[in-house]
């Protein structure tokens, strides 16, 4: 199994990414910035941040390790993996 202890940090990271995609700290705030309510800008910036961190998650190899695979050894090339039986 290829899990690293440091990969566990992704669990709270994802939880925070999901939880704060809703701009809770701006509850009831009605300021308009650059033509849109400021909480819409928060959401737009947050989803940009999500894409950035998702990309880091994938590139760091945590994507495979999270499933107990060694990074770089999955069937990225599309070849069916061994071990199961395809019917």
């Amino acid at each position: 199994m290829g899990r690293l202890r440091s990969d566990l940090v992704w669990v709270p990271t994802f939880a925070v990414l999901v939880a704060l995609a809703v701009p809770w700290p701006l509850w009831g705030v009605d300021r308009v910035v650059a033509g849109l309510p400021v909480w819409i800008w928060w959401h737009i910036a947050w989803l940009g941040l999500c894409t950035g961190l998702f990309s880091l998650f994938v590139r760091s190899g945590a994507w495979e390790r999270g499933m107990g695979l060694r990074s770089g050894t999955t069937a990225d090339d599309g070849a069916p993996m061994t071990g199961g039986d395809r019917r």
Binding site: L17, V18, A21, V22, P23, W39, I40, H43, W46, L47, C50
Partner: peptide
């Protein structure tokens, strides 16, 4: 927008 963005884009 926030509801759909959160559920579709992140969750």
């Amino acid at each position: 927008l926030i509801v759909m963005g959160t559920l579709d884009g992140v969750l």
